[in-house]
Design a protein around this nucleic acid. Structure first.
Ligand SMILES: [Mn+2]
Ligand SMILES: [Mn+2]
Ligand SMILES: [Mn+2]
Ligand SMILES: [Mn+2]
Lengths: 219, 219
DNA sequence: GCTAAATATTAGGATTGCCTAAAAATATAT
DNA sequence: ATATATTTTTAGGCAATCCTAATATTTAGC
């Protein structure tokens, strides 16, 4: 496994989870490489039984590919957690550092780090950290944008996008916040919310609200 | 700068410091690559003004090359310190992890790590950690093997060799120990020493004593 | 000082991963 | 249903870094 192969496997996992088929183009876009490079790399990953490829139909991970993907996601998110919790990085800044450290992280290092961090369950963006055996909890795919007026939800996770995270940091909205949706302004206007703990009112842009995933807090 | 170029620069620094000329062969041996590969890489480093090469005479670093070398040594040793101080690694085990992490360490990450570790001056093997500006203290080149009977010295540093470090860990000898040399057994026999703090007597093998560097504690 | 051994360089070739441009396959829109 | 647009694959090349084998140069032994 080279770092590039790991990144291909990881992006297939992140875009498609454990069964959705991903197109050549989606990978090329996400990794910022040419389509021809993707075709070529995928054919190598097929040989190594890490992915399944139906030409012109799509690409998905084998069990073995999933194993590598979750390991890499684990390492990535442990580093992100380290950077925020121990080195006082801002959550918007950790991605590029983790993106390279992940590939140089032995299993021993990952497990020492995990222990040092107190076995965190989530990265600073709310992403699940798989355990040593590749097990991880389900994640929500419910967008804040889709929550109904008056619904009470918990902020579960943010997509790991720099601009989004800077925006949310400025706004003061955090993972694990319990909030109440007040209303959806028309014409793709902001979603108005209130944080229950401190009654702070926030207006979350329509676009951002599509990149924030929530979980109903029942009630 | 690629990771391999960084490793070439670093080994030239470690073998030769800031002025000694290093041979092709020494580099090939240290990095475990073929002599032809070294010639080729050196010619690239010459183009980039990182090293000076007199064919058949030897290779040394330019000022620019020294700058890169000290930066990499700094990152390497900060990681080693992190692994020992925070993740409870044994000093014999840290080298391979640091060897790869060093290449993926931004200046920002290095300085956050430095702060987190409390600005350590030395790595777990007693090697000096250069500061952000590439400055570092002098190091001793006096081998324990050469210390005279009855001389009192402080253990300054160990060469970073796995077997040596395992041996010294078992023996219980540490960097910064203040010791007294008792005697040199003949026929390349061990050097008998006593640690001043706890009067613990130790017999350090002849070979190991050539890889341990000390500083006179005057007295 | 000459010859043999050691060291360094050059030459030719492999691999990995990327690129662009052309060709093939598929999807979409009227 | 065809023409157009999009996506995917193929083909030909390039850069980095390694290797082995052949050649050149320097050093060491007698
Ligand atoms: Mn990565
Ligand atoms: Mn994350
Ligand atoms: Mn290295
Ligand atoms: Mn060290």
């Amino acid at each position: 496994m080279t770092p590039m192969k790991e990144d291909y496997i990881k992006i297939i996992f992140e875009l498609g989870g454990i069964n959705k088929k991903i197109s050549n183009k989606e990978i090329a876009l996400a990794l910022d490489v040419a389509a021809g490079s993707v075709t070529e790399m995928i054919s190598k990953l097929v040989e190594e039984k890490l992915v399944v490829h139906e030409p012109y139909a799509g690409i998905s991970l084998t069990k073995k590919g999933q194993r590598y993907a979750t390991e890499l996601v684990r390492k990535h998110r442990l580093w992100e957690t380290f950077l925020v919790d121990k080195l006082n990085y801002n959550m918007a800044d950790v991605h590029p550092e983790a993106e390279v450290l992940e590939h140089q992280t032995s299993d021993r290092l990952a497990s020492s780090l995990d222990n040092f961090l107190g076995y965190p369950k989530h990265c600073p963006h709310g992403g699940v950290i798989p355990d040593e055996n590749g097990h991880f909890d389900d994640i929500s795919h419910e967008m804040l944008a889709m929550a109904k007026d008056n619904e009470e939800v918990e902020i579960e996770r943010f997509l790991d996008n720099h601009e989004l995270l800077v925006y949310l940091t400025d706004l003061g909205l955090n993972v694990e916040d319990d909030i109440k949706v007040i209303r959806h302004d028309p014409f793709e206007g902001p979603i108005q919310i209130v944080r229950k703990t401190d009654q702070k009112a926030m207006a979350v842009s329509y676009k951002a609200a599509h990149n924030i995933f929530v979980r109903k807090t029942n009630g």
